[in-house]
């Protein structure tokens, strides 16, 4: 049996727990670790295991369902679904991503990471996500 996918959240981080769950799950969804048809733990179970409120996990699942990744039918556990092909991001959305990336790159440079290293990290992430 292949090892189960794991998510990791840091409760002392400035990033809200719900955002960390969304980000961690999205990475697993994008890179194919969680293919369509995969069942996710129930909101109750995941909240229990992480030691956080049900609403936090519920909000994370709803966000991913709105993005088209999950099927959240009442009374059933969350399931990964095949996502429709996405149209190219709008110029406004693209600008939003650019701002986020610029902030992140600035943070890395401020922390002393070399330009070439940043470029290599971004390339390796893109390849790793199997896009």
């Amino acid at each position: 049996m292949p090892p189960l996918a794991k998510i990791r959240i840091d409760l002392t981080s400035q990033v809200p727990a719900y955002r960390q769950i969304v980000d961690a799950l999205r990475v697993l969804l994008v890179d194919g670790t969680l293919p369509p048809g995969t069942g996710l733990p129930s909101v109750r179970r995941l909240a229990m295991e992480l030691g956080i409120h049900f609403n936090t996990v519920g909000e994370a699942y709803r966000t991913l369902a709105e993005e088209g990744w999950l099927d959240l039918r009442h009374g059933r556990s969350a399931k990964v679904i095949a996502r429709d092909a996405q149209s190219a991001a709008s110029p406004e959305r693209l600008q939003e991503f650019r701002t986020q990336l610029r902030n992140l790159v600035a943070q890395m440079r401020a922390a002393g990471v070399a330009r070439s290293r940043i470029a290599a990290e971004l390339r390796s992430l893109l390849e790793g996500l199997n896009l």
Binding site: L4, A5, K6, I7, R8, I9, D10, L11, T12, L28, L34, T38, G39, L40, P41, S42, R45, L46, E49, L50, G51, S77
Partner: peptide, 16 residues
């Protein structure tokens, strides 16, 4: 010194 509170959880949909 403060210790981070990192939680790692397996995504298992199996019932208990």
């Amino acid at each position: 010194p403060p210790v981070g509170d990192v939680r790692v959880v397996e995504l298992s949909s199996d019932d208990d």
